[in-house]
Computed example of a mutant assay.
Amino acid sequence: MNYDVNIFKLLFRMEDSIFRINETEKIQNLWKSSLYILLAAIAVYVWMAYLGIGSGLVSEGAIRLAPAQYTVHKFWFVIGRLLYAILFWGFTLFVPAVLFNMVTEIPFQKLVIIQQLVFAMLIVERLIWIPLAIYAGLDWYSSPMSFGIIAAYLTSRSWIIYFFGAISIFQIWIIFLQVRYIHGLCQMPKRGIWASVIFLHVFEWGFAALFSSMDSYMIGGWFG
């Protein structure tokens, strides 16, 4: 049996997809679909950079720059977001697939299929946040879909706010989907799968918080 990767079927026809992925002998269009979602991510992040989302520190630095210099820095800001989209794509698709392959022995390509669904959901989450950023002025960690707002009421420590801001309704949904798919593709006890998936996400949330904290220092240094 051949399996043709389809993100929509992965999301809306889960049981059928699990059966077909289990039984497949050849996966078709895996790398083509991976390229498509990479291009979608690049388009979204470049669009966000063009709209000025996340460029608050760049705008603050514009006061000390000539118009030509500011344009150059804005250009590099867009390039930086493009490179971030590529790194984000690579990390999301392949790092969890490698780790889950080591733990569960599910074939690597089948795990990449699962991560394609994860990445697509993360891009949708980012698209939903764009109007919140433009019209309500909300940062990603202040999204009503995340726990960042609650954390901001409890503490002023930015790292903690970023950490809980990275935990959203979409993230929780993704965890459930990953557990369901991995459990359907291997014989590993479900408790072990839950522990592995949650541990990976806690690491990702911590990394996102650390990167966000460093991001302000890096941009500040760039314009310093």
Score class of each variant (00 low, 15 high):
Leu93Gly: 07
Ile160Cys: 04
Glu23Asp: 14
Gly184Gln: 11
Glu204Phe: 10
Leu39Cys: 12
Ser213Pro: 02
Pro107Ile: 03
Phe12Asn: 06
Trp89Gln: 05
Leu93Thr: 02
Ala151Asp: 10
Gly52Asp: 03
Ala40Ser: 10
Ile113His: 02
Ile167Met: 03
Phe163Asp: 03
Phe199Glu: 12
Tyr135Asp: 05
Val112Asp: 06
Leu10Trp: 04
Phe164His: 02
Trp76Phe: 15
Gln69Gly: 14
Ala152Glu: 11
Leu65Pro: 00
Tyr45Asp: 03
Leu35Asp: 02
Asn22Tyr: 04
Ile18Met: 12
Ser142Val: 01
Lys190Leu: 15
Met188Ser: 10
Leu87Ile: 13
Ile167Ala: 00
Leu200Met: 13
Tyr36Ile: 13
Val46Asn: 07
Leu83Gly: 02
Ser156Gln: 11
Glu60Phe: 09
Ile182Phe: 05
Ile167Asp: 00
Ile134Thr: 09
Ile128Glu: 05
Trp47Cys: 14
Tyr153Asn: 13
Met102Ser: 12
Leu35Cys: 07
Ser143Arg: 03
Gly184Met: 09
Thr155Phe: 04
Met14Leu: 15
Tyr181Met: 13
Thr71Cys: 08
Gly148Met: 05
His183Tyr: 12
Ala166Asn: 06
Ile149Trp: 10
Arg13Gln: 15
Pro107Ser: 12
Tyr162Met: 01
Leu30Tyr: 02
Val78Met: 10
Tyr162Glu: 03
Phe77Met: 01
Ala133Ser: 14
Phe163Ala: 07
Ser17Lys: 05
Val95Trp: 08
Ile193Thr: 07
Leu185Cys: 06
Ile114Pro: 00
Leu10Asn: 14
Ile169Thr: 09
Ala66Gly: 12
Phe94Ala: 11
Phe163Pro: 03
Gly80Asn: 03
Phe164Leu: 13
Tyr141His: 14
Leu111Ile: 04
Phe207Thr: 10
Ala208Tyr: 13
Gly52Ala: 08
Leu185Gln: 08
Ala41Cys: 07
Phe223Gln: 08
Thr71Phe: 11
Ser55Pro: 01
Leu154Arg: 06
Gly52Trp: 06
Leu99Glu: 03
Lys9Met: 12
Lys74Glu: 03
Val124His: 08
Gln109Asn: 14
Ile161Gln: 12
Phe223His: 08
Phe88Gly: 02
Gly56Asn: 11
Met145Trp: 13
Asn101Gly: 15
Lys26Ile: 07
His73Phe: 09
Tyr153Phe: 13
Tyr84Cys: 03
Leu177Trp: 09
Ser55Asn: 09
Gly165Ser: 00
Tyr50Ala: 15
Ile7Pro: 01
Ile53Thr: 10
Pro144Ile: 06
Tyr50Val: 14
Lys32Val: 06
Phe119Lys: 02
Gly165Gln: 01
Gly220Glu: 12
Glu15Ala: 14
Gly56Trp: 07
Thr71Glu: 14
Pro189Ser: 13
Phe223Asn: 06
Met121Asn: 12
Ala49Trp: 06
Ser142Trp: 14
Met188Trp: 03
Glu23Arg: 09
Tyr36Met: 11
Gly220Leu: 11
Met14Asp: 05
Trp194Gln: 06
Phe223Glu: 08
Ala208Leu: 13
Phe8Trp: 12
Leu138Val: 04
Trp76Val: 02
Glu105Thr: 08
Ser212Leu: 10
Met145Lys: 05
